[in-house]
Amino acid sequence: MKKLQWKYIRWIILVLLLMSIFLFRFVSGTGEFYARSIYPVISSCLSRIASWFPFSLCEVLVIVMLVCLLVYPFIARRRNRRWRWIAVTEVEILLWMYVWFYWGWGINYFRNDFFERAGVTPCTYEEQRFKQFLSAYTDSLNAAFSQEVYVSQPALEQAIKSVYAKIPEKYGLIRPKDFQHPKRSFCNALYSGVGVLGYMGPFFDESHVNHELLPVQRPFTYAHELAHLLGVSSEAEANFWAYQVCIHSTDAGIRYSGYFGLLPYVVVNTRGLLSETEFKSWLDTVRPEIIKQLYDKEAYWDDRYNKLLGKLQNVVYNWYLKSNQIPSGQKNYAQVIGMILSLPTNWWK
Rank of each mutant, 00 (worst) to 15 (best):
K2F: 15
L4Q: 15
W6K: 15
V15N: 07
L16E: 05
L17P: 04
L23F: 14
R25K: 13
F26L: 11
S28M: 07
T30A: 07
G31H: 00
G31Q: 01
A35H: 07
S37N: 12
P40G: 01
A50E: 00
S51Q: 07
S51H: 05
S51M: 04
P54H: 01
F55N: 07
S56L: 00
L57A: 03
V62T: 14
V64N: 04
L69K: 06
V71Y: 09
N80I: 13
N80S: 10
R82T: 14
R82F: 11
R84L: 13
I86F: 03
I86E: 06
V91D: 10
V91P: 13
M97W: 14
Y98L: 14
V99H: 15
Y102H: 12
R111F: 15
R111Q: 12
N112C: 14
F115R: 12
A118P: 12
C123W: 08
E127L: 09
S135N: 12
L141S: 03
S152L: 02
E157Y: 10
I160Q: 03
S162Q: 11
V163Q: 03
K166M: 06
I167N: 05
P168Q: 00
P168T: 03
K170P: 03
L173I: 04
L173C: 05
Q180G: 05
P182S: 08
F186E: 03
F186R: 06
N188P: 13
S192T: 10
S192V: 09
V194K: 07
L197A: 13
Y199K: 01
P202E: 02
P202R: 01
E206A: 04
H211A: 14
H211D: 11
L213N: 07
L214R: 08
V216F: 01
T221K: 01
T221G: 00
H224Q: 00
L230I: 03
V232C: 02
E237F: 07
A238R: 08
A238Q: 10
N239P: 05
F240R: 11
Q244M: 13
V245R: 09
H248K: 15
G253L: 09
S257H: 01
L262D: 04
L263C: 08
V268W: 12
T270Q: 01
D284S: 14
V286L: 09
E289N: 03
I291W: 13
L294Y: 15
D296F: 02
A299G: 10
Y300S: 00
D302C: 08
D303F: 08
L312H: 06
V316P: 00
S323L: 04
N324E: 00
K331W: 06
A334Q: 07
L341R: 05
N346Y: 13
W348G: 06
